[in-house]
Design a protein around this nucleic acid. Structure first.
Lengths: 199, 199, 199, 199
DNA sequence: GATGAATGAGGGTTCATTCAT
DNA sequence: TATGAATGAACCCTCATTCAT
């Protein structure tokens, strides 16, 4: 009998090699050959575990999305107070272990690819929507629904901007200042909301 | 008898064909051949006007950056009051003629490329820096320097987020709601600044 | 504890899977992997029972030739009269169970391969020669040797033509009309031979 | 301006290189690379003149069919008497310049391919049908229609058999004996037809 | 005996680039 | 100035074959 149970191991190896390869030279140089080499395997093996190169890219994007989501979910689960949970979403989004150069580079590359690959677009849409509904859900517990919707949109957009800057900054991500900016925005919005209601 | 003055015309044609090609199929399908065809020219022509494909891409990114900058500068020049000029920067950034699907797709593709092409990185860095200094310069005329710095960073980040969402949204850019979000942020920040100073 | 007596069973399984695979997609798509799958076995198994793919192909062609020959021999053995035995050769050659789409497709594929594979050429040569000597042997009992030689050649060629048409016809083999054509040829030749001798 | 009018020249070169490559090593070794090399060109050029390798193969089969047909048509055109024209068809079919080892090997390879490539099947069907209608047309001028149909079928089949033997014979085609066999068949059939009518 | 993981050569194809015209 | 023929490297992918289990 051959080595059994290699599939999940190899798939994960190849996905991680893909992310690393993208970070090193961009999507254009993340060739099947180089990904295989980086995983310590031969080029041909990729088609043993993935139907296509496209399938590998899709699995990679899905893994990125899933890891990212998990990082947030775990933090949120530790809190109970609405505001603390809201903060956990932001902190999870901007946590240094989420914004690694590799992750951020790969995700940016996929974002550009999304326009021409509908299957990737779906993955991206799902994750954006989930972030929005997370934010909105927690906000609704502290502000009226209409405002929650608006604040969630603004905050989500700001987080996207922070992420984009992390991705394209030559010095890499700066979690501390990102953190400050996001919380400042949240506080401003909440303060105004309170004022409105007091009047 | 060589036709005189063709160079700038051809260069512009090719740059525009490049942008269009990127929008249609992503950077991966923006081949020299397709770009030439789209410009109504032969594949070989590119190397008459550009040293190689990278040079064409660089020129394209530079053109995008320059057009973008011009769109803002023109609006700002029409205003004199600091707040109006600030608004003009935001409006220029988010103006529908700036956020065309073509422009936005091309710029996103270049953003992903930037990590592996230092020459493109420089172009991007310049434009980000200019936006920041524009915002800061106008803000300094209405709020103290320290606050101006922070507000400029926040506003710049939010604009980036709005742009990114425009670039990756399946329904395309939504200038109206982007506009509202940006101005709301600006007003909140300015209001707080005023409050601080009144105390 | 090795299973005993598996070898002939497995070899036959693989040979039949090869024939089926060739019929389905031509020789080009009859890969080791697909043949194994069709036999309900793994891709690697082929090299347990055959030295390499060429050996499997050779065994397959040999099996086809042998089955084909057996089909004729059995029919001939049932007859004693020279003419009846001659008819049995023809009938055996054109019998529906010989001209199955699978058989015919595989044999045609091998015929094309023969030019570049000397070992296959030998197998083919043997079977053609045997058919010829079968026909000639029976003919010699009813016509003079010189005529037997010529008629055997003509009849053999006609049978080849019938077989080729069966192999390449889009509607598949038509044994009935093939049968008629072959016997008509034989009768014409025998009639002339009789006439010659009467003079 | 580049070299003009190369297309028909190159296409013919590549088609002939394809035929030669098939003869040398069979279809399996007639790779794009080897075909290109044999034509004194680079591998990439094939896709300049043909969409696909399949398109090249199709063009090659079409060229073989067309050359073959032309060889017959020219001979027939020189004759006026029905029997002479009939003889010209046979002679054209079996002419040494038609039955070259290259031609015959390539056509056999295509015949095997036909089962899995519908587009090639069409080409083959057309040429078989044309031969049949040629034979029938001339025969109708010397024998009744019903007999013409049958004789044409028999003669066509015999010619196919002769061709197949030429293709698979280790010593190559033997036009002289092929010629004799075919004319003998024709004469036998015509003689019988005459006898029938005299009765 | 049998598996399927793994290899690496070679397949068809695409593409940036060069060059004669 | 502009063409498109031509190149050759590199891409993704398939495949016969090997091998640890």
């Amino acid at each position: 009998m051959p080595k059994l149970g290699m599939e999940p191991i190899r798939r994960r190896q190849l996905i991680e090699a893909t992310i690393a390869a993208i970070q090193e030279g961009g999507l254009a140089e993340a060739t099947v050959s180089r990904i295989g080499h980086r995983a310590g395997l031969s080029p041909g093996i990729i088609h043993h575990y993935f139907e296509d190169k496209d399938a590998l890219l899709e699995a990679t994007m899905r893994a990125l999305a899933s890891d990212f989501r998990l990082g947030i979910v775990k933090r949120v689960a530790r809190e109970t107070a609405p505001l603390a949970r809201l903060g956990a979403v932001i902190e999870g989004f901007l946590a240094p272990e989420q914004l690694t150069p590799q992750t951020v580079a790969a995700w940016l590359a996929f974002s550009a690819l999304v326009r021409s690959k509908p299957r990737l677009a779906r993955i991206q849409r799902v994750i954006v929507r989930r972030l929005h509904s997370n934010l909105k859900h927690e906000l609704k517990r502290v502000v009226p629904a209409a405002e929650a919707e608006q604040i969630a949109e603004g905050l989500g957009t700001l987080l996207d901007g922070l992420w984009l800057r992390a991705a394209t900054s030559p010095t890499g991500p700066d979690p501390a200042s990102a953190h400050r900016l996001a919380f400042d925005y949240l506080e401003l919005q909440l303060a105004r909301s309170r004022t409105n209601r007091q009047v």
